[in-house]
Design a protein around this nucleic acid. Structure first.
Lengths: 247, 247
DNA sequence: ATAATTAGTGTAGAATTAACACTAATAGAT
DNA sequence: ATCTATTAGTGTTAATTCTACACTAATTAT
């Protein structure tokens, strides 16, 4: 056993963390929303070396006084202006070669923004910050961000099946068929209408608003998500989980 | 939008990572094995401030040249001497107060050691390194390690249900009822013998060795785990996934 | 009116699960 | 040598859940 941080620490007097070279730590965010009935991810364009001109996931350094979650939420607000949206830690990427500048360890997060909120800040139409459909990205991303995005999508698909995560992508009120559409978007597969109706109703996570919305055909009932806990989670399982390739 | 590492980088000329104060980064490991038919975790006793005398998860600093996985595997080998065992990243803990000495961000890993390998190195019976049954720990752990261990156990239970992870805790050859016992240990619940036999056989992940082992009653057939991929994963699902509280 | 369109319900067969009764092969006791 | 305890392993059935698809409902456009 050689020297190690927690198992073989020094005394308070002799402890000196600066003996060890330390990496930079950033948070990077895969921020998703639903636009034009398609799943989109927020990307920023790099203006400098390395990967100049490539698109990247938004992110930034973790400051010394804040937790990882706080850092992620701060970056999220800086990029989008939104608050109180779903945020969850995804995975930590630490390949020593992932950033050519210096050793950077990135703690990646997933954020989901409701379909009624995605315009707030990014609407300045800056050409450097934009939403892209996940199935039509602007070339390979900077750093290992393509890989991070892959892992994020994989996690998203997996969690969709046993959590109520999908609701986070919808506006405050929505119809059942809109919800079904999200599942189809993320899972990339067609679902049966009848079975979906039955299952989602059994789950008891829908709160009818009483409202109707008129459209081309029969008007649809509108619902909101019944929050049984403060946070969105673990109530409705569309079906049993399939494989999540996360390692 | 303020300055951020990846989205608003400097030019190569002006880039200077040392402007930012950097945290220390460690890996901490929840190393599990099966001893005396019970799930055990490896702990090390702290000899210095802070948490002197408390038990902690083994771990150590990430070095500048190695990836996180490499750091975890190095620490694992240093503590236990074992190689080629199951290792997976769990979660990253970054509360600024989690270590009173300095800012330390810990990337936590789970490792599973087969029942026939857990004696190799730790057998020196050092009073500072020892296996403990997870349901009978020696007091509250140092730092936030109790929380890390909770998350690890939760993840373990969850993945057990849709992966072949349990095999990693068994010796090279084993009986079906021994496998069932592991599931019961980790899930904390009794399973039906008949249903277990049927399901595990249907799954086609068992390779009969032809061997029999005599015991008190009828001799049992011995099997080994049929590795369909290099890594252990994603073949046998005992039942559909329950809740994993990981956030 | 009638067709087109979107919303929503019913239902029957297939597949899976859960509970538990049953059979099998050994060691040790009588 | 037979009986009993013990561990191993199989069969069966009823209940539940899933799947596919046919059907009914309410509106707008023509």
């Amino acid at each position: 056993m050689s020297t190690s941080a927690d198992s073989q620490p020094e005394t308070a007097a002799t402890y000196d963390a600066s003996r060890y070279e330390r990496p930079s730590v950033t948070v990077d965010l895969a921020i998703f929303t639903l636009k034009d009935r398609e799943l989109h991810v927020l990307l920023v364009k790099r203006r400098n070396w390395p990967f100049e001109g490539h698109w990247a996931l938004p992110g930034g350094f973790v400051e010394m006084h804040e937790s990882l979650d706080q850092a992620a939420r701060r970056e999220l607000e800086e990029e989008t202006g939104v608050q109180n949206v779903y945020l969850e830690q995804l995975y930590t990427f630490g390949d020593p070669e992932r950033d050519p500048r210096t050793r950077v360890i990135s703690v990646a997060y997933i954020a989901l923004i409701g379909a009624d909120m995605h315009q707030l800040h990014v609407s300045d139409e800056s050409i450097d910050v934009n939403w892209f459909p996940v199935r039509e990205l602007p070339g390979p991303l900077a750093f290992d961000h393509s890989k991070i995005l892959d892992v994020a999508l994989s996690r998203l698909r997996s969690k969709l099946e046993y959590t109520t995560l999908a609701f986070q992508l919808l506006p405050e009120v929505f119809s059942i068929l809109e919800l079904k559409h999200i599942y189809e978007q993320i899972l990339g597969e067609q679902l049966d209408k009848g079975n979906f109706y039955r299952k989602i109703k059994e789950a008891g996570v829908l709160e009818p608003t009483g409202q109707l919305r008129e459209g081309r055909g029969r008007p649809t009932h509108l619902y909101r998500f019944k929050r049984t806990r403060a946070d969105a989670d673990f109530v409705f399982r569309w079906r049993e989980a399939k494989v999540e390739d996360e390692a």
